[in-house]
Simulated scan of single mutants.
Amino acid sequence: MLQVKNLSYEVIENGQKLRIIDDISFDVADGEMLVITGPNGGGKSTMASLLMGIKPQTSGQIILDGEDITGFDIDHRAKAGLGFAFQQPPRFKGMTVKHLLQLSSGGELSEDESCKLLSNVGLCAMEYLDRQVDSTLSGGEMKRIEIATAFSKPHKLCIFDEPEAGIDLWSFSMLVQQFEAI
């Protein structure tokens, strides 16, 4: 279970304090899916970054399965069981998709396991395993590969920042089924 208590995030812009996230509290029970929607600039990506430890909260508490992870950095939050998929997935020139999947899984993956991960996100696996994770991939392909990396390892909780970005509606409905499965 994830518990978020009185989470706030402020920045200073032009000498003015701007509160981006203001005293937000919510719980996400085991097996529950929470979707946060809102307008551009509404704080959705900021919330995801705060939960993962990419940005430091100004105040509040984040508790995962009874453990206070508020002071944990991104690495320790990942080790505690949080998974994350960025809004804009990073690209790694010279790294193959297969290698990226293995790194994200934390161990060796067979070709069959790698292919299943890619197939689960709507990619024809054999066409992608040896491709580089670089600018030759479209935004939608990158998004799917990143979601596959999140699926490659069990997590207590996965955070997906705009998982639909660059993905057609039919494919996204298939991905929703995968999100529900985890």
Results as ranks from 00 to 15, higher is better:
97 V>F: 06
36 I>M: 04
71 G>D: 12
78 A>I: 10
106 G>E: 12
119 S>W: 05
88 Q>K: 13
157 L>E: 06
110 S>V: 01
83 G>I: 04
95 M>H: 05
29 A>N: 13
45 S>H: 05
179 F>V: 02
126 M>L: 11
99 H>Q: 14
92 F>C: 08
25 S>T: 13
7 L>P: 07
155 H>L: 02
84 F>R: 01
113 E>T: 08
135 S>G: 08
154 P>I: 00
129 L>Y: 07
21 I>K: 11
129 L>S: 07
89 P>Q: 07
71 G>A: 13
11 V>G: 09
58 T>S: 15
49 S>M: 09
119 S>R: 13
81 G>Y: 08
83 G>Y: 07
11 V>D: 08
73 D>S: 12
145 I>C: 10
42 G>Y: 03
78 A>Q: 06
181 A>I: 00
2 L>R: 01
109 L>K: 13
75 D>Q: 13
164 E>K: 06
56 P>M: 10
13 E>V: 13
74 I>S: 15
163 P>D: 02
103 L>G: 03
147 I>D: 08
20 I>P: 05
166 G>P: 11
104 S>P: 00
69 I>E: 03
42 G>E: 03
66 G>D: 08
13 E>K: 14
5 K>C: 02
147 I>G: 09
42 G>K: 06
25 S>C: 08
58 T>A: 04
55 K>V: 03
113 E>Q: 15
69 I>M: 03
52 M>P: 00
148 A>E: 04
147 I>E: 06
70 T>K: 08
68 D>N: 15
145 I>A: 09
176 V>G: 05
73 D>C: 08
82 L>R: 03
139 G>E: 10
11 V>H: 10
145 I>E: 10
13 E>Y: 11
66 G>L: 10
29 A>G: 03
69 I>Y: 08
71 G>N: 14
69 I>F: 04
12 I>W: 11
102 Q>E: 15
31 G>Q: 01
92 F>H: 12
115 C>F: 01
34 L>N: 01
22 D>K: 13
106 G>I: 11
137 L>C: 07
108 E>R: 14
60 G>E: 11
9 Y>D: 02
100 L>D: 01
126 M>P: 10
85 A>R: 01
54 I>M: 12
45 S>A: 09
63 I>K: 10
22 D>M: 02
69 I>V: 13
106 G>M: 09
66 G>A: 06
131 R>P: 09
149 T>R: 15
109 L>D: 06
111 E>Y: 03
160 F>S: 01
68 D>Y: 05
161 D>V: 05
166 G>C: 09
99 H>E: 15
74 I>C: 09
45 S>Y: 05
115 C>I: 10
120 N>L: 03
37 T>M: 12
55 K>I: 07
161 D>L: 06
83 G>M: 06
168 D>R: 06
158 C>V: 14
141 E>K: 11
116 K>G: 01
155 H>T: 06
167 I>G: 12
158 C>P: 00
29 A>P: 02
41 G>S: 05
114 S>Q: 14
81 G>F: 06
68 D>E: 07
9 Y>M: 04
86 F>M: 12
148 A>M: 12
84 F>P: 02
69 I>K: 04
62 I>D: 03
139 G>F: 10
82 L>V: 07
172 F>P: 05
151 F>E: 00
65 D>E: 14
104 S>A: 15
83 G>P: 03
167 I>H: 12
